[in-house]
């Protein structure tokens, strides 16, 4: 699984941090940070959930 995060799109809602805290964090201004672009398979569900819930469509998940 490969994750990409478009920080220019990010609106700082923090939905990803609450959904998949192992993979995402947030800067002080709210913009999301990608902690792990290749997270382990057991996190796949929560990462896909974070991408689906992102209100700025800033997260892309590609299966590999």
């Amino acid at each position: 699984m490969r994750i990409t995060l478009d920080q220019d799109r990010c609106c700082g809602a923090g939905t990803c941090v609450m959904t998949a805290p192992e993979v995402f964090d947030q800067r002080d201004d709210g913009i999301a940070i990608l902690l792990d672009p290749n997270p382990p398979t057991q996190l796949a569900t929560s990462v896909r959930d974070a991408a689906a819930r992102c209100p700025a469509a800033a997260i892309r998940v590609e299966a590999r």
Partner: peptide, 8 residues
């Protein structure tokens, strides 16, 4: 208000 992390 300009405090995303603290709000969370």
């Amino acid at each position: 208000w300009n405090s995303p992390r603290a709000l969370r």
